[in-house]
Amino acid sequence: MTSVPAVQADGLVKRFGELRAVDQIDLEVRHGEIFGVLGPNGAGKTTMLKMLATLLHIDGGRAEIFGVDVAAEPHRVRQLIGVTGQYASVDEDLTATENLWLFGRLQGLRSADARSTARRLLEQFGLQEAAERRISEFSGGMRRRLDLAASLITRPPLIFLDEPTTGLDPRTRGQMWDTIRELVNDGCTLLLTTQYLDEADQLADRVCVIDHGRKVAEGTPDQLKSQVGDSTLQLELAPGADQALARAVVLRVLDEEPVATPESGRLNVPLDVADRAADVLIALREAGVAVASVNVAKPTLDEVFLSLTGHDADADADSAADGHAGTVPGQDQPSLDDTTPEMSR
């Protein structure tokens, strides 16, 4: 029975002077899912997460974690969450083991239990080699992993991850992703923020897009992507064309299994590079498969972001603090068509 959502926020507001860093955000995160909060630097992701994690005062609206009010009962909420901050929240002067032991003790574990938990977590995160080293000697990736491990000591049902892979190299990033996926297999609920569109795509079951403190869209990554068009080559075969042959050709050319859609004669082919569509088409003609229509849609959430907010995800870090003349009014179910803001530059 999991009727209570892990996170329920209504109209969250955070003001810093004139600036509304978080402006009327509603959020519902279901138990057991990975929920991604996507947005550029300065969009208000971290601020929102800090409010939910009892680290920042909530200026307006309300939030509940598993039905417990964040503002009214922060101490209870803290027993339900683990927070992994953007900047490693572990002690530089202590070793990895000492850090985990300390956090275990602070959460009511007995000394021996805290020690065995520390050992187990270090093993789980592949850090046993570095167990007795000080954090100041750790690499960025190791720090992040230790930080995540520190959030799991009491196995809280909800984990907040603030930009878990920002600044990591691609390999470490992949490792971090694997670790995060495993967490959910353990039954955790995860709320993560990210400025990487592919990260949200990779990890999250559902995503909301935040810009200038407002939520501009929400849905599964696929739903969001489908708002701009599918990230695929869509083939409609001519009536009577050999579908099996067409599938074989696509498989040979792209080494990728095409997906048949419910409408007969239609194939969706995932493309990594758009111009490989041409290869597929040429191969199909050589094989004598007639194609009725072709559609190549541009992929990734980048596109989504662009069409939702009217500006590029990366290019906007500086203008984030200038207020939000160019943003869309927050909506519960925004659709792409009516979110075309004018830019004010």
């Binding site: 209570v4 138990h31 598993f66 039905g67 027993q79 339900l80 009491t154 196995r155 909800l158």
Partner: peptide
Amino acid sequence: TAVRPRPAPVTDPAVIVART
């Protein structure tokens, strides 16, 4: 103690909430 280390997956959050 509030929550003990358990090897098993996290239980129903309602149970954990009740234990806070």
